[in-house]
C-alpha cells in the first residue's frame, strides 16, 4: 500500500495523533531548537499527542517515556510528518 505523508506542525495535532519529527521552522531560535532536541524532539523521533487539555491549557506530547507540554509558540515551530492512507482527507 502506498502511503503518502503530510507535513504539519506539532501544534496542529489532535489527541491520539502519532507523528515523526522532520525538522524545525527557521524562525525558531537556535538555542530553543537545541533544547527541544535535548528533550527528545529529534528529527526522526516519534511523538504522540496525548491530549488536548481542557481550560485552554497547552497540549501534551509524549516523546519516548517522557511527557511534555509545549505552548503554541514553540509547538508550531516543530515540523512533523504524519503517515496517512491514500485517499484520506487532507
Amino acid at each position: 500500500m502506498n502511503a503518502s505523508a503530510i507535513t504539519k506542525t506539532l501544534w496542529s495535532l489532535q489527541a491520539g495523533d502519532a507523528v515523526r519529527v522532520i525538522g524545525f521552522d527557521d524562525s525558531l531560535p537556535e538555542r530553543y531548537r537545541v533544547r527541544l532536541e535535548e528533550f527528545g524532539f529529534h528529527p526522526g523521533e516519534n511523538v504522540e499527542c496525548l491530549m488536548t487539555p481542557g481550560l485552554g491549557a497547552p497540549k501534551l506530547y509524549r516523546v519516548s517515556n517522557t511527557v511534555f507540554s509545549l505552548d503554541d509558540d514553540i509547538a508550531s515551530c516543530v515540523l512533523v510528518q504524519m503517515a496517512v492512507s491514500p485517499g484520506a482527507a487532507l
Binding site: L50, P53, G54, R62, N65
Partner: peptide, 24 residues
C-alpha cells in the same frame, strides 16, 4: 533504556482526570 509504556499509561489516565475541562 527501559521499554514499554506502563508508566505513561497510568500517568495519562490521571492526566485525563486532572486536565480535562470539567473534572480538571
Amino acid at each position: 533504556g527501559p521499554r514499554g509504556d506502563v508508566l505513561i499509561q497510568s500517568q495519562t489516565r490521571l492526566d485525563r482526570f486532572f486536565l480535562s475541562g470539567f473534572t480538571g
